[in-house]
Nucleic acid binder design. Structure first.
Lengths: 171, 171
DNA sequence: CGCAGGTAGTTCAGCGCGCAAGTTTCGCGG
DNA sequence: CCGCGAAACTTGCGCGCTGAACTACCTGCG
């Protein structure tokens, strides 16, 4: 089970670590996504969204704050909130201070859905994640992840580097 | 920064671990994807594909074997190989033994692209992953990931119903 | 031999996602 | 007061991916 184009200037050990890490994360997320979709009819990211809203100051949040907290692009937020609004689980409200802005507020119906979905989500987490790891491993994993996270959020990605090559996506 | 609908029956520590882990993995993959797309005009999964083919017995592989090795759905393989074929980096070849089957063979052009893309991919891995982790952390991460991976590949996901009736054991 | 049942790939419809471009509003200088 | 750049969303579009339905083929049983 490979990951990344494989060896080039990476040691065998490094390669093994990366393969294990990326495969595990990919499969884990895929599994959690599918199970949650089946049990709660909700994508995992939408559950996160509802969760953040529910924990917000007044069950509501500015779109931009929501985007920052969930680390997702503004357009994603728009699409997601639109769908959640169509489902009746979230409502958009105008912002008095800033007419450009917009609040997303979770409805009572949304709170119900959230409760159910959280249960399913946590169950999946137990089954596929926490169940198999010792407290020490969890601590290690946390430190590693927070380290990676810190560097990822700190570095802002080099601008637009031109590249030359044919691309497979054509039609 | 939340992940999953947040607390329900998870401890604060568990929640923190999960948030860190899922956020880091998500951001890391997204970053590597974008950078590789810009530097090599190639999705990361397609690079993996080419890598597997290049390391294969005769630079070729059956579609089903490829699907198993890369842990991707058959339909994904079809689409991916079709695009890679359109780019001239892979060629489909009929299978003599089994007329249903199909070989995917990487072309010389594909090998060139692979070399370039591997360099870019590994550079990204160095920058955003290995650079920040100690050998011990890498070892820890590997063990954790392999543990998760083992359980994920072992359990085959309940069918369409959350049937909890007693099958002696899954497997 | 003929037909069921399984396997290998493909096709189709649809999802979540993010980039780029567009629209409305804010803030600020003149 | 106007105008200009920036900010807060929104829209449009294409990507990678999947599950389900479909086709073509192989296998085994009688």
């Amino acid at each position: 089970m490979p990951a990344m184009g494989s060896h080039t200037d990476l040691s065998d050990t490094e390669l093994a670590v990366w393969r294990a890490y990326s495969s595990a994360a990919r499969l884990l997320f895929a599994r959690l996504d599918r199970e949650l979709q089946r049990d709660a009819r909700l994508p995992r990211s939408y559950l996160d969204l509802l969760g953040v809203l529910a924990d917000g100051p007044a069950r509501a949040m500015r779109m931009s704050d929501l985007a920052e907290v969930t680390m997702s692009a503004p357009s994603r937020l728009t699409h997601a909130v639109s769908q959640l609004e169509a489902a009746g689980w979230v409502r958009r409200e105008r912002c008095n201070d800033d007419r450009r802005g917009c609040y997303a507020r979770i409805t009572d119906e949304g709170m119900d859905v959230l409760r159910t979905a959280r249960a399913a989500g946590c169950a999946g987490l137990r089954t596929h994640f926490f169940e198999h790891l010792s407290p020490e491993q969890l601590q290690q994993l946390r430190e590693v992840s927070e380290t990676l996270l810190a560097h990822l959020t700190a570095s802002a990605e080099p601008a637009c580097e031109p590249a030359e090559a044919g691309s497979p996506q054509g039609g």
